[in-house]
Simulated scan of single mutants.
Amino acid sequence: MQSTTLSLYRFGSIPARLWAFAQMGLARWAMHDVRDIGTWKLCGSGTGEGFTPLPNTAVYAILATWPDHDTARRALFGAGVFRRYAAISSERMTLFLTPTTARGTWAGEQPFEVGSEGHGPIAALTRATVKPRVAARFWGRVPGISAVVGEDPNVMFKIGIGEVPLLHQVTFSIWPDAASMAHFARKNGPHAQAIRAVREEGWFREELYARFNVDAVEGRWEGATPDFAAPPADDKRPQEKIGIAAE
């Protein structure tokens, strides 16, 4: 079953942040050489709740697909490019995900191979290419959306990332279940209004929507190891964290 990983890295010092920014271009060569990797994306992030056009120079992300979680774990532990990110960052976290639904395309392709749905928390990813002529209107609505996402008590985690500032944006969030996520998406407010505008005015050149089971989490974020993933229904033992980097 295909594995998708989202690795987040926080960089504290100015030299470390400059290194991370440079890797948005330089690391592409090394990523091509990672064994068994499928689709991969190097992304920056937004400030505040993450869903803003202002870049957060401290946080970067690598999204990747693999044949399975074990293959992902070996690569994330052993590949030089991931080891360098881990060594230079001040904080890092990797989410191990299994795609359950996916529609649309990313750079003309569908990167996610859908498996079966599980139970417990789910992750939602939206990726869109914003048409340049409507970028100002799109980002004008984002602060309102960001505010309501930040205030929603059901949101377990959220971040906005992207490959190209202003034009290529990705939203990623984790919810306790599908019902709470659907309630947020459908209730009237800035998010629903923006969705209607997207549909009526055709703001996006390309769209992709995907959901994932949250299978495991490794590392620390904001000083703690989040417990997003649920154990199997017949297993009440504490969840085992998957280790991918030497401490």
Rank of each mutant, 00 (worst) to 15 (best):
A194S: 15
M156K: 09
I122E: 02
A194I: 10
E91W: 02
A123E: 05
S173R: 00
V148Y: 03
G202R: 01
Q110F: 04
G243Q: 11
A192D: 01
R103Y: 08
L95F: 00
P132I: 00
G78E: 12
A64P: 09
A61D: 10
W40Q: 10
L95W: 00
V214H: 08
F51C: 09
A64H: 13
P232L: 09
W106F: 08
E200K: 10
T100N: 06
G243P: 04
A233E: 13
V59K: 02
S116Y: 06
M93D: 00
S173M: 05
R220M: 12
I14P: 03
F21P: 00
E109K: 13
R127C: 02
A123P: 10
R137D: 12
E117L: 06
Y9L: 11
W139S: 06
K187N: 11
V149D: 03
E113G: 12
W203Q: 02
A182G: 03
K131Y: 00
R35L: 12
A246Y: 11
S173W: 02
R141V: 03
G104A: 14
Q2D: 11
I159Y: 10
L208D: 00
L6K: 07
H183G: 07
I174Y: 01
A147D: 01
A16C: 05
E218T: 09
V134M: 13
G144D: 03
I88G: 04
S180I: 08
A61M: 14
V130W: 01
F77D: 13
F157K: 03
W106D: 06
L26W: 07
L26V: 09
V134A: 05
M156Q: 12
R205F: 02
V149A: 06
V81L: 07
A61F: 10
R199Y: 08
K187S: 15
T129D: 13
D70S: 12
Q110H: 14
V214I: 11
R83V: 03
A192V: 03
R199W: 02
L76H: 13
R35I: 11
S173T: 12
A123L: 11
W139T: 10
A147I: 00
Y209L: 03
A192Y: 01
F51W: 14
E207C: 01
G104S: 15
T39M: 10
A27I: 09
T98M: 04
N154D: 03
A178K: 14
A30Y: 05
G144P: 05
A147C: 04
G44L: 12
W40H: 14
T225W: 08
F228Y: 13
P232T: 07
H183K: 08
P226F: 08
T65P: 01
N188Q: 14
T225M: 07
V114A: 07
W40F: 14
F184Y: 15
H32T: 11
G140D: 07
K236Y: 07
H119P: 04
A102T: 14
A224G: 02
D68T: 04
V198M: 15
G189Q: 02
A136H: 14
A246K: 13
P143I: 05
E207D: 03
E200F: 03
H32K: 13
